[in-house]
Simulated scan of single mutants.
Amino acid sequence: MDATAREFNQKSSQMLAAAARGETITVTKNGVAVARMVPVSDDDVPSHPINPMGEIDLPDLGLPDLADDEIEETLRGMGA
């Protein structure tokens, strides 16, 4: 289905319902396609955020690997 920007503005509820039924809507402005509304399947949206920050690559600072109790002991010595 194609719709002008004006039609989309006036009938967005009906167009959302059409997308929910499986239709793809292309919105045009001055005859040029500017947006596309597509149906979303359950596979498209995870039930919870997956890696919301994306992959984080931390630099190697050359620090020793410390166990939790070693970290706590170090912090105690710092007045924590």
Rank of each mutant, 00 (worst) to 15 (best):
A20S: 11
P39W: 00
V45Y: 03
N30V: 08
S47W: 05
Q10G: 08
V45F: 07
L63P: 01
M53R: 13
A3P: 01
L75T: 09
D57S: 10
E73D: 15
D65C: 02
A33D: 12
M1S: 09
R76P: 02
A5M: 12
A67C: 05
D69C: 06
I71G: 04
A3D: 00
V32L: 11
I25Y: 00
I50L: 12
A17K: 12
L16H: 09
D57Q: 10
A35E: 10
A18I: 00
A35N: 12
K11W: 06
A20E: 14
D68E: 15
D65G: 02
D57P: 00
N9Q: 15
R76N: 13
M15R: 01
L75H: 08
V34P: 00
G31H: 05
D44S: 12
I56S: 08
P39I: 03
T24I: 08
N51R: 09
V34L: 01
Q14D: 15
R6C: 06
G22A: 04
D60Y: 04
G62K: 03
L16C: 08
Q14A: 14
I25D: 00
I50C: 01
S13F: 05
S13T: 11
A20Q: 12
I56P: 01
P64N: 07
A18Q: 09
G54Q: 03
I50G: 01
S13L: 09
L75I: 13
R6N: 11
T26W: 00
M53S: 13
E7N: 09
A67I: 07
V40T: 14
E7T: 06
N30M: 10
H48R: 15
E23Y: 02
A20C: 07
T28K: 06
D43S: 14
A20P: 00
E72M: 14
E7A: 11
A19D: 00
T4P: 02
S13M: 06
M1A: 10
I25M: 02
K29S: 13
N51S: 15
